[in-house]
Nucleic acid binder design. Structure first.
Lengths: 355, 355
DNA sequence: AGCATCTTTGCATTCGAATGCAAGAATGCT
DNA sequence: AGCATTCTTGCATTCGAATGCAAAGATGCT
């Protein structure tokens, strides 16, 4: 009792405490004992904005340093009901767009004191498992850049877990979403292709179930039709390099007359397409075949490709996604929000005039 | 008291409990009350191998389902002193090797019930911050495929956090490490190059501080010298595409006679090198310049590159890394272990005979 | 000095699940 | 039936930090 009250423990007792801790992780109680204060005082010293005198803070901090004390985020999470964990669901060994998103999301989360709990999700089943796990770990929110069904989302909503979709959405459903709607860039680039003499186009889509792909396709179709009843052949891929390559073969075999320009719904397929054209089919890109695409991932600008592509402002989108998560965590009842970004046209060297 | 004892709660009371929960996350107490058993019984039902009768288990599980109960991993972590979290430290927007490792590590962790807490680390400072965070979150272990100083590692060891290095290590220091030592593949491919008539080589290294790069370099140098006092010019890169490109320029400006084969210490630099050779310098690869490299990442096999490269068995390495973590978590005092893997030579089309 | 106001501090409780211990139930054996 | 053994179950405590409340201390004002 008395020893608890005294302002500083005796030197010999101090070393006793320090050595007692040895091998164990120091807790706030250990720090409190060493500093001769209460556990709550220690807790308050590590809570920004709490009411603590300078004297107390100094003493506690000194003791904390001696014991290498760090607040236990798990215990803190239990009592505060905030884990500071955010689940990130990404798919994707096949599309190198995702790693870029993942790394930037992680950094943005880190800036606001949140940690990324990573889940790789290649199917709806995976998403279901990820959701269960995320729920068990009491994540503060989920950022999904991957497969997730409406039912699964509903479950999360019922459980009051904030969800932000990253370049994924459901038609006309109210959700939090960050995505890129590059309407004017599509106009611009399609016009440009037409100015270059292109009249016959092909479109390599993503899966029909993917809304972002559908949206991009709509923009492309509208724009091509708006100028002239253009010739547009469409085939479907799965966003992967390989599927871009086989899509090209399909186009060439199906089209009555070979298209002079191909619009790929993402960079990976465009790269597959270019490589297939050059190495297998023997078409020169861009002289004989122009190719444009969407995303603007890093490697789309490698000299082998130098894609003309519509870049997503991934950095700002990640920032927005994290911003939405934070906002929903702080005010769970606020209504959903869509943050839509423009694209940016990167003029590479994958297009040319029709010869 | 009495109601706590009775084997099943009354129907009306049940719905009262169910609705009481509404909006809240169900806890083991809620389930216990609904099932008419004790909280410890619920806990045991969710612990594999615990002693519970079938009757009890059924009743508890039914109640749990009704309430959508899932054990709170945070609370569990607090009492068991096991968070089931593993920190993964990767660097790397610039080297697409890391995303592959990251995704596979995550999947392997998931298989053994562990979750990946992701940290992006581009410098030792970042590593320091990641370590602090990981420590606060009571991670069960750390897998580092990134910068980490010996001092930082020592801190972790002192704190008894298992660490496994992934393709990183310190010279002759005892640590847990998984890496790839492709000695025979280096021999094989260098011999092959020599058989193809190559005598003048260049080596594009990674940073001198990187042990894996140094090790690969050693293998290359030994092998080249062992056959003939070959001509070997060396320049340093940073594993990125761009640095591969500029390394080529440096080689061409420094070398008295142009090398006919370039050994790149990773695929990214090889791709930069190939692109630079083809697009800027105007050299045909492989006719005028052969290029080989290390890693065997997915995109190294894209048709634009088709690198002859020594692949790391990333899948098995990730499995091993997770295995080591699990072993250290279960038996913390066991001594360190190195798991070394062979490489596998992928014969692409980036090499040819000297003309 | 005396009183009011504001600040600082400690006490006691809480979050949700796990677990050692002992009591109680079920089973087997003589 | 009586006793020993094994299996189930509940009680009470624990993990480590946060926080409402009230007491104690500091400060200002008259």
């Amino acid at each position: 009792m008395a020893s608890n009250r005294q302002k500083t423990s005796q030197p010999d007792e101090n070393s006793k405490i320090v050595s007692l801790i040895k091998g164990r992780r120091a807790t706030s109680y250990d720090v409190a004992r060493l500093a001769g204060v209460s556990q709550s005082a220690v807790s308050r010293c590590f809570k920004p904005g709490a009411s603590v005198s300078q004297k107390m803070r100094d003493r506690v901090m000194k003791a904390a340093e001696q014991l290498e004390y760090r607040p236990n985020a798990i215990a803190r999470g239990l009592i505060t009901q905030r884990s500071n964990l955010v689940a990130i669901l990404v798919s994707g060994r096949l599309n190198l767009y995702y790693p870029e998103v993942l790394f930037q999301l992680t950094e943005e989360l880190s800036k606001v004191g949140l940690r990324a709990l990573l889940f790789t999700v290649e199917s709806e089943d995976d998403a279901g498992m990820a959701i269960e796990q995320a729920w068990q770990f009491q994540v503060d929110g989920i950022i999904s850049a991957s497969h997730m069904s409406w039912d699964q989302y509903q479950t999360l909503e019922k459980r009051k877990i904030p969800v932000v979709f990253f370049n994924r959405y459901f038609l006309d459903k109210p959700i939090n979403v960050v995505h890129c709607y590059p309407a004017s860039q599509v106009s611009e680039i399609i016009s440009k292709l037409q100015d270059l003499g292109h009249r016959k186009f092909a479109l390599i889509r993503g899966p029909e179930s993917n809304m972002v792909s559908r949206q991009r396709c709509e923009l492309v179709r509208e724009r091509i039709r708006s100028v002239r009843k253009g010739n547009l052949i469409e085939v479907e891929g799965d966003f992967s390099y390989d599927s871009g390559a086989s899509a090209l073969q399909q186009i060439l075999s199906e089209a009555a007359a070979r298209p002079t320009a191909i619009i790929c719904i993402n960079d990976m397929m465009a790269m597959g397409c270019i490589d297939e054209a050059r190495s297998i089919v023997g078409l020169e890109v861009p002289r004989e075949l122009s190719i444009i695409s969407f995303d603007g991932i890093g490697m789309s600008q490698f000299a082998s490709y130098e894609l003309t592509t519509i870049r997503q402002p991934i950095g700002r989108m990640c920032e927005a996604a994290v911003g939405l998560i934070v906002a929903r965590v702080e005010r769970p009842d606020q209504s959903n929000e869509k943050r839509v970004f423009e694209g940016a046209l990167i003029e590479g060297s994958s297009i040319a005039a029709v010869s």
